[in-house]
Simulated assay, not measured.
Amino acid sequence: MKPLLRAEQAVLGAVLLDPGQLAALSWLAPAHFYRPVHRALFAAMRKLHAEGHPTLTDAGEVPIEWVTGSVAEASVNVRGLSASYAHTLIAACPRPGHAPVYGRMVLEGAIHRTVTQHAVRLHQVARADSLQGEVDGALHQAAVLADVLASLAHRWGTEPRPLAPAQSRTEAAVPPPAATEKALQDEQILLSVLVNQPAAMNEVVLWLRPGDFAEPGHGQLYRCLGALHHRGEPIDELTVLWEAQRRGLLADGVLTDVQVRGICEGCGVGSAEFLGEQIMRSSLTRTAATSAGAIRALAEDEALAPGRLISHALHALGPLDEVKARWKNATAEPSATTIPASADPPPPARIDAALARSQLRRPTRPDPATQTTHARPAGRAPTRSHS
Protein backbone atom coordinates (compact mmCIF):
# COMPACT_ATOMS: atom_id res chain seq x y z
CA MET A 1 0.00 0.00 0.00
CA LYS A 2 1.26 3.47 -0.87
CA PRO A 3 2.28 5.78 1.97
CA LEU A 4 -0.48 8.22 1.03
CA LEU A 5 -3.25 5.67 1.59
CA ARG A 6 -1.66 4.57 4.84
CA ALA A 7 -1.58 8.21 5.94
CA GLU A 8 -5.31 8.54 5.19
CA GLN A 9 -6.03 5.45 7.24
CA ALA A 10 -3.84 6.73 10.07
CA VAL A 11 -5.69 10.06 10.23
CA LEU A 12 -9.09 8.38 10.34
CA GLY A 13 -7.89 5.82 12.90
CA ALA A 14 -6.51 8.61 15.09
CA VAL A 15 -9.86 10.46 15.07
CA LEU A 16 -11.75 7.25 15.82
CA LEU A 17 -9.45 6.64 18.78
CA ASP A 18 -9.33 10.28 19.89
CA PRO A 19 -12.13 12.53 18.54
CA GLY A 20 -10.41 15.50 20.15
CA GLN A 21 -7.86 15.39 17.31
CA LEU A 22 -10.47 17.01 15.05
CA ALA A 23 -9.64 20.35 16.68
CA ALA A 24 -6.07 20.02 15.45
CA LEU A 25 -7.27 19.04 11.95
CA SER A 26 -9.55 22.01 11.23
CA TRP A 27 -7.51 22.82 8.10
CA LEU A 28 -8.06 19.35 6.64
CA ALA A 29 -11.17 18.88 4.47
CA PRO A 30 -12.90 15.69 3.34
CA ALA A 31 -12.06 16.53 -0.27
CA HIS A 32 -8.37 16.13 0.53
CA PHE A 33 -8.79 12.37 0.89
CA TYR A 34 -8.19 10.24 -2.18
CA ARG A 35 -10.55 7.32 -1.49
CA PRO A 36 -14.30 8.12 -1.50
CA VAL A 37 -14.88 5.97 1.57
CA HIS A 38 -12.27 7.96 3.46
CA ARG A 39 -13.83 11.26 2.38
CA ALA A 40 -17.26 10.11 3.54
CA LEU A 41 -16.01 8.86 6.91
CA PHE A 42 -14.04 12.02 7.70
CA ALA A 43 -17.02 14.18 6.74
CA ALA A 44 -19.29 12.06 8.94
CA MET A 45 -16.99 12.39 11.95
CA ARG A 46 -16.78 16.16 11.52
CA LYS A 47 -20.55 16.38 11.27
CA LEU A 48 -21.20 14.28 14.37
CA HIS A 49 -18.60 16.20 16.34
CA ALA A 50 -20.11 19.56 15.31
CA GLU A 51 -23.58 18.34 16.33
CA GLY A 52 -22.35 17.52 19.82
CA HIS A 53 -22.20 13.75 19.57
CA PRO A 54 -20.84 12.31 22.84
CA THR A 55 -17.23 11.38 22.21
CA LEU A 56 -16.18 10.57 25.77
CA THR A 57 -17.79 8.52 28.51
CA ASP A 58 -17.84 9.43 32.17
CA ALA A 59 -14.72 7.33 32.59
CA GLY A 60 -12.92 9.40 29.92
CA GLU A 61 -13.02 6.66 27.27
CA VAL A 62 -14.28 6.86 23.70
CA PRO A 63 -17.69 5.14 23.51
CA ILE A 64 -18.34 2.46 20.95
CA GLU A 65 -21.26 4.57 19.71
CA TRP A 66 -18.73 7.07 18.33
CA VAL A 67 -17.32 4.44 16.00
CA THR A 68 -20.61 2.86 15.02
CA GLY A 69 -22.32 6.22 14.62
CA SER A 70 -19.54 7.51 12.35
CA VAL A 71 -19.74 4.39 10.18
CA ALA A 72 -23.52 4.62 9.97
CA GLU A 73 -23.43 8.32 9.02
CA ALA A 74 -20.79 7.73 6.36
CA SER A 75 -22.69 4.75 4.95
CA VAL A 76 -25.48 7.11 3.92
CA ASN A 77 -23.25 8.61 1.22
CA VAL A 78 -20.97 5.71 0.30
CA ARG A 79 -21.23 1.96 -0.01
CA GLY A 80 -18.91 -0.77 1.18
CA LEU A 81 -18.11 0.68 4.60
CA SER A 82 -18.44 -1.68 7.55
CA ALA A 83 -17.55 -1.71 11.22
CA SER A 84 -14.73 -4.14 10.50
CA TYR A 85 -13.06 -1.56 8.24
CA ALA A 86 -13.26 0.95 11.09
CA HIS A 87 -11.19 -1.42 13.20
CA THR A 88 -8.74 -1.72 10.30
CA LEU A 89 -8.33 2.06 10.36
CA ILE A 90 -7.75 2.04 14.11
CA ALA A 91 -5.08 -0.64 13.73
CA ALA A 92 -3.39 1.39 10.97
CA CYS A 93 -2.77 4.38 13.27
CA PRO A 94 0.67 4.15 14.92
CA ARG A 95 -0.01 6.98 17.39
CA PRO A 96 -3.20 9.06 17.63
CA GLY A 97 -1.25 12.07 18.88
CA HIS A 98 0.53 12.28 15.52
CA ALA A 99 -2.72 12.98 13.67
CA PRO A 100 -1.66 16.50 12.50
CA VAL A 101 1.46 15.04 10.90
CA TYR A 102 -0.56 12.35 9.16
CA GLY A 103 -3.01 15.04 8.07
CA ARG A 104 -0.27 17.04 6.39
CA MET A 105 0.69 13.92 4.48
CA VAL A 106 -2.90 13.69 3.24
CA LEU A 107 -2.90 17.39 2.33
CA GLU A 108 0.38 17.00 0.48
CA GLY A 109 -1.09 14.23 -1.64
CA ALA A 110 -4.19 16.33 -2.26
CA ILE A 111 -2.08 19.25 -3.47
CA HIS A 112 -0.22 17.08 -5.98
CA ARG A 113 -3.50 15.56 -7.14
CA THR A 114 -5.29 18.91 -7.46
CA VAL A 115 -2.48 20.53 -9.43
CA THR A 116 -2.38 17.53 -11.76
CA GLN A 117 -6.11 17.67 -12.39
CA HIS A 118 -6.12 21.38 -13.23
CA ALA A 119 -3.02 21.05 -15.41
CA VAL A 120 -4.67 18.27 -17.41
CA ARG A 121 -7.80 20.39 -17.77
CA LEU A 122 -5.78 23.37 -19.01
CA HIS A 123 -3.99 21.18 -21.55
CA GLN A 124 -7.28 19.78 -22.87
CA VAL A 125 -8.92 23.20 -23.15
CA ALA A 126 -5.85 24.69 -24.85
CA ARG A 127 -5.81 21.90 -27.42
CA ALA A 128 -9.53 22.36 -28.09
CA ASP A 129 -9.10 26.13 -28.49
CA SER A 130 -6.20 25.55 -30.86
CA LEU A 131 -8.36 23.45 -33.17
CA GLN A 132 -11.24 25.93 -33.01
CA GLY A 133 -9.13 29.06 -33.33
CA GLU A 134 -10.22 30.39 -29.94
CA VAL A 135 -8.39 31.50 -26.80
CA ASP A 136 -11.12 32.30 -24.26
CA GLY A 137 -11.24 28.80 -22.80
CA ALA A 138 -7.48 28.60 -22.32
CA LEU A 139 -7.37 32.06 -20.74
CA HIS A 140 -10.16 31.18 -18.31
CA GLN A 141 -8.65 27.84 -17.33
CA ALA A 142 -5.22 29.40 -16.85
CA ALA A 143 -6.75 31.97 -14.49
CA VAL A 144 -8.49 29.16 -12.59
CA LEU A 145 -5.21 27.28 -12.24
CA ALA A 146 -3.45 30.39 -10.95
CA ASP A 147 -6.19 30.93 -8.36
CA VAL A 148 -6.00 27.29 -7.30
CA LEU A 149 -2.23 27.54 -6.83
CA ALA A 150 -2.64 30.67 -4.71
CA SER A 151 -5.31 28.96 -2.58
CA LEU A 152 -3.17 25.85 -2.12
CA ALA A 153 -0.20 27.97 -1.10
CA HIS A 154 -2.32 29.69 1.53
CA ARG A 155 -3.59 26.37 2.85
CA TRP A 156 -0.08 24.90 2.94
CA GLY A 157 1.25 28.00 4.68
CA THR A 158 3.61 29.38 2.03
CA GLU A 159 3.73 32.46 -0.17
CA PRO A 160 2.66 31.94 -3.81
CA ARG A 161 5.95 33.06 -5.37
CA PRO A 162 7.24 31.83 -8.73
CA LEU A 163 10.48 29.88 -8.48
CA ALA A 164 12.42 28.31 -11.33
CA PRO A 165 12.95 24.55 -10.88
CA ALA A 166 16.36 22.97 -10.83
CA GLN A 167 17.94 21.93 -14.10
CA SER A 168 17.32 18.25 -13.37
CA ARG A 169 13.56 18.88 -13.16
CA THR A 170 13.42 20.80 -16.46
CA GLU A 171 15.20 18.21 -18.55
CA ALA A 172 12.02 16.15 -18.90
CA ALA A 173 9.95 19.15 -19.97
CA VAL A 174 7.04 18.32 -22.26
CA PRO A 175 7.70 19.48 -25.84
CA PRO A 176 5.26 22.01 -27.31
CA PRO A 177 2.40 20.59 -29.39
CA ALA A 178 2.76 20.53 -33.15
CA ALA A 179 1.35 23.53 -34.98
CA THR A 180 -1.55 23.15 -37.36
CA GLU A 181 -1.12 23.55 -41.10
CA LYS A 182 -3.22 26.70 -41.03
CA ALA A 183 -0.96 28.29 -38.42
CA LEU A 184 2.12 27.66 -40.57
CA GLN A 185 0.37 29.13 -43.61
CA ASP A 186 -0.59 32.25 -41.66
CA GLU A 187 3.05 32.70 -40.64
CA GLN A 188 4.27 32.45 -44.22
CA ILE A 189 1.65 34.88 -45.50
CA LEU A 190 2.43 37.40 -42.76
CA LEU A 191 6.15 37.31 -43.51
CA SER A 192 5.42 37.81 -47.20
CA VAL A 193 3.18 40.78 -46.38
CA LEU A 194 5.87 42.36 -44.20
CA VAL A 195 8.50 41.99 -46.92
CA ASN A 196 6.29 43.42 -49.67
CA GLN A 197 4.67 46.04 -47.43
CA PRO A 198 7.46 47.18 -45.06
CA ALA A 199 5.23 49.85 -43.51
CA ALA A 200 3.02 47.06 -42.14
CA MET A 201 5.73 46.29 -39.57
CA ASN A 202 4.36 49.17 -37.52
CA GLU A 203 1.09 47.24 -37.09
CA VAL A 204 2.65 44.23 -35.35
CA VAL A 205 6.13 45.13 -34.12
CA LEU A 206 4.96 46.33 -30.70
CA TRP A 207 3.32 43.05 -29.62
CA LEU A 208 4.35 40.22 -31.94
CA ARG A 209 7.57 38.39 -31.01
CA PRO A 210 9.71 35.81 -32.84
CA GLY A 211 8.79 33.23 -30.22
CA ASP A 212 5.14 33.47 -31.24
CA PHE A 213 5.90 31.67 -34.50
CA ALA A 214 5.43 27.91 -34.40
CA GLU A 215 8.12 27.31 -37.03
CA PRO A 216 11.55 28.35 -35.64
CA GLY A 217 12.72 29.40 -39.10
CA HIS A 218 9.75 31.74 -39.46
CA GLY A 219 10.51 33.28 -36.09
CA GLN A 220 14.13 33.90 -37.04
CA LEU A 221 13.07 35.46 -40.34
CA TYR A 222 10.71 37.76 -38.44
CA ARG A 223 13.63 38.66 -36.19
CA CYS A 224 15.58 39.69 -39.31
CA LEU A 225 12.70 41.87 -40.45
CA GLY A 226 12.50 43.44 -37.02
CA ALA A 227 16.22 44.22 -37.05
CA LEU A 228 15.99 45.89 -40.45
CA HIS A 229 12.95 47.85 -39.32
CA HIS A 230 14.63 48.92 -36.10
CA ARG A 231 17.72 50.19 -37.92
CA GLY A 232 15.63 52.02 -40.49
CA GLU A 233 17.07 50.04 -43.39
CA PRO A 234 15.08 49.10 -46.49
CA ILE A 235 13.28 45.76 -46.50
CA ASP A 236 13.23 43.66 -49.64
CA GLU A 237 14.17 40.15 -50.71
CA LEU A 238 17.90 40.85 -50.92
CA THR A 239 18.24 42.77 -47.64
CA VAL A 240 16.30 40.06 -45.79
CA LEU A 241 18.45 37.33 -47.32
CA TRP A 242 21.61 39.24 -46.44
CA GLU A 243 20.46 39.77 -42.85
CA ALA A 244 19.68 36.05 -42.52
CA GLN A 245 23.14 35.19 -43.80
CA ARG A 246 24.82 37.67 -41.46
CA ARG A 247 23.05 36.09 -38.50
CA GLY A 248 24.29 32.65 -39.50
CA LEU A 249 20.84 31.26 -40.21
CA LEU A 250 21.80 29.96 -43.63
CA ALA A 251 24.99 28.33 -42.40
CA ASP A 252 23.24 26.67 -39.44
CA GLY A 253 20.49 25.25 -41.63
CA VAL A 254 17.73 27.11 -39.83
CA LEU A 255 16.76 28.65 -43.16
CA THR A 256 17.75 28.16 -46.78
CA ASP A 257 17.95 30.76 -49.48
CA VAL A 258 15.18 28.92 -51.32
CA GLN A 259 12.87 29.23 -48.32
CA VAL A 260 13.64 32.91 -47.88
CA ARG A 261 13.07 33.68 -51.55
CA GLY A 262 9.87 31.64 -51.57
CA ILE A 263 8.45 33.63 -48.68
CA CYS A 264 9.60 36.97 -50.05
CA GLU A 265 8.16 36.23 -53.49
CA GLY A 266 4.76 35.31 -52.04
CA CYS A 267 1.57 37.16 -52.78
CA GLY A 268 2.28 39.75 -50.09
CA VAL A 269 -1.40 40.71 -49.89
CA GLY A 270 -3.32 40.79 -46.62
CA SER A 271 -3.70 42.55 -43.31
CA ALA A 272 -0.61 42.28 -41.16
CA GLU A 273 -2.59 43.08 -38.03
CA PHE A 274 -5.17 40.35 -38.70
CA LEU A 275 -2.53 37.74 -39.53
CA GLY A 276 -0.50 38.77 -36.50
CA GLU A 277 -3.52 38.23 -34.26
CA GLN A 278 -4.03 34.78 -35.76
CA ILE A 279 -0.43 33.90 -34.96
CA MET A 280 -0.89 35.26 -31.44
CA ARG A 281 -3.92 33.01 -30.97
CA SER A 282 -1.91 29.99 -31.96
CA SER A 283 0.99 31.10 -29.77
CA LEU A 284 -1.25 31.58 -26.74
CA THR A 285 -2.89 28.16 -26.95
CA ARG A 286 0.43 26.49 -27.72
CA THR A 287 2.08 28.19 -24.75
CA ALA A 288 -0.84 27.23 -22.51
CA ALA A 289 -0.51 23.59 -23.52
CA THR A 290 3.24 23.67 -22.94
CA SER A 291 2.85 25.25 -19.50
CA ALA A 292 0.18 22.71 -18.60
CA GLY A 293 2.44 19.84 -19.62
CA ALA A 294 5.31 21.19 -17.54
CA ILE A 295 3.07 21.67 -14.49
CA ARG A 296 1.66 18.18 -14.83
CA ALA A 297 5.17 16.71 -14.96
CA LEU A 298 6.04 18.60 -11.79
CA ALA A 299 2.88 17.51 -9.99
CA GLU A 300 3.50 13.85 -10.82
CA ASP A 301 6.88 14.01 -9.08
CA GLU A 302 6.01 12.66 -5.64
CA ALA A 303 9.41 13.69 -4.29
CA LEU A 304 8.64 17.37 -4.83
CA ALA A 305 7.48 19.17 -1.70
CA PRO A 306 4.14 21.04 -1.99
CA GLY A 307 5.70 24.48 -1.47
CA ARG A 308 8.22 23.83 -4.22
CA LEU A 309 5.54 22.38 -6.47
CA ILE A 310 3.37 25.48 -6.16
CA SER A 311 6.31 27.84 -6.76
CA HIS A 312 7.55 25.86 -9.77
CA ALA A 313 4.01 25.69 -11.19
CA LEU A 314 3.62 29.46 -10.91
CA HIS A 315 6.96 29.85 -12.67
CA ALA A 316 5.73 27.56 -15.46
CA LEU A 317 2.75 29.89 -15.95
CA GLY A 318 5.11 32.85 -16.47
CA PRO A 319 5.50 32.45 -20.27
CA LEU A 320 1.73 32.19 -20.62
CA ASP A 321 1.24 35.38 -18.59
CA GLU A 322 3.67 37.19 -20.87
CA VAL A 323 1.89 36.06 -24.04
CA LYS A 324 -1.48 36.87 -22.48
CA ALA A 325 -0.37 40.43 -21.69
CA ARG A 326 0.73 40.99 -25.30
CA TRP A 327 -2.49 39.46 -26.56
CA LYS A 328 -4.47 42.00 -24.56
CA ASN A 329 -2.38 44.81 -26.02
CA ALA A 330 -2.92 43.49 -29.54
CA THR A 331 -6.69 43.19 -29.20
CA ALA A 332 -7.37 46.17 -26.93
CA GLU A 333 -9.82 48.72 -28.26
CA PRO A 334 -8.30 52.16 -28.79
CA SER A 335 -9.30 54.60 -26.08
CA ALA A 336 -11.63 57.38 -27.18
CA THR A 337 -9.77 59.87 -25.03
CA THR A 338 -6.39 59.00 -26.43
CA ILE A 339 -5.13 61.45 -29.04
CA PRO A 340 -2.88 59.68 -31.53
CA ALA A 341 0.46 61.34 -31.83
CA SER A 342 3.38 60.60 -34.08
CA ALA A 343 6.35 58.99 -32.42
CA ASP A 344 9.41 61.12 -31.85
CA PRO A 345 11.86 60.73 -34.75
CA PRO A 346 15.08 58.89 -34.02
CA PRO A 347 18.19 60.98 -33.38
CA PRO A 348 20.01 62.25 -36.52
CA ALA A 349 23.13 60.28 -35.62
CA ARG A 350 21.13 57.05 -35.55
CA ILE A 351 19.55 57.86 -38.93
CA ASP A 352 22.93 58.59 -40.45
CA ALA A 353 24.36 55.33 -39.09
CA ALA A 354 21.47 53.29 -40.50
CA LEU A 355 21.77 54.95 -43.90
CA ALA A 356 25.49 54.41 -43.92
CA ARG A 357 24.95 50.68 -43.53
CA SER A 358 22.43 50.48 -46.35
CA GLN A 359 23.77 52.75 -49.07
CA LEU A 360 26.84 54.70 -50.12
CA ARG A 361 26.95 58.35 -49.17
CA ARG A 362 28.53 60.78 -51.59
CA PRO A 363 30.10 63.99 -50.38
CA THR A 364 27.96 67.00 -51.13
CA ARG A 365 29.33 70.12 -52.79
CA PRO A 366 28.09 73.58 -51.93
CA ASP A 367 25.85 75.20 -54.50
CA PRO A 368 27.51 78.40 -55.79
CA ALA A 369 24.13 79.96 -56.40
CA THR A 370 23.05 79.57 -52.82
CA GLN A 371 26.40 79.92 -51.07
CA THR A 372 26.68 83.00 -48.86
CA THR A 373 30.08 84.74 -48.71
CA HIS A 374 31.25 86.91 -45.90
CA ALA A 375 34.57 88.07 -47.41
CA ARG A 376 35.52 91.72 -47.05
CA PRO A 377 35.54 93.89 -50.21
CA ALA A 378 38.92 93.94 -51.95
CA GLY A 379 40.93 97.09 -51.74
CA ARG A 380 39.67 98.13 -48.35
CA ALA A 381 42.08 97.59 -45.52
CA PRO A 382 40.84 96.78 -42.09
CA THR A 383 40.74 99.61 -39.71
CA ARG A 384 42.24 99.46 -36.28
CA SER A 385 41.65 101.67 -33.36
CA HIS A 386 44.71 103.01 -31.51
CA SER A 387 42.85 104.81 -28.84
Rank of each mutant, 00 (worst) to 15 (best):
M1K: 12
M1N: 12
K2T: 03
K2I: 09
P3S: 09
L5I: 06
A7S: 07
L12H: 00
A14E: 00
P19V: 01
Q21W: 08
L22F: 02
A24P: 02
H32Y: 00
V37L: 03
R39I: 05
F42L: 00
H49W: 14
H53I: 07
P63I: 07
T68I: 10
A72T: 11
S75L: 05
V76R: 15
R79P: 03
L81P: 07
L81Q: 03
S82G: 02
H87Q: 13
A91V: 03
A91Y: 07
V101K: 02
M105C: 03
T114F: 09
V115F: 05
A119S: 11
A126M: 13
R127Q: 15
R127K: 14
L131Y: 13
D136T: 11
A138E: 02
H140A: 15
Q141L: 13
A146I: 13
L149W: 09
A153F: 12
Q167N: 15
S168T: 12
A172F: 10
A172Y: 14
A173R: 00
D186M: 12
E187P: 08
L194F: 09
V204R: 09
V204S: 08
L206D: 12
P210G: 13
G217A: 07
G217Q: 05
G217P: 03
Q220H: 10
L228H: 07
H230G: 11
R231F: 10
E237H: 11
T239P: 00
R246P: 03
L250C: 02
L255H: 04
V260Y: 11
V260K: 03
A272F: 03
G276I: 04
I279C: 04
L284R: 01
R286F: 04
T287Y: 03
I295T: 06
R296K: 14
A305M: 08
R308G: 14
H315T: 09
L320K: 00
L320M: 02
L320D: 02
V323H: 01
A325D: 02
K328I: 08
S335L: 09
A336L: 12
A341M: 12
A341C: 04
S358Q: 06
R365L: 13
T370V: 13
Q371N: 10
T372H: 09
H374K: 11
S385M: 15
H386G: 04
S387I: 10
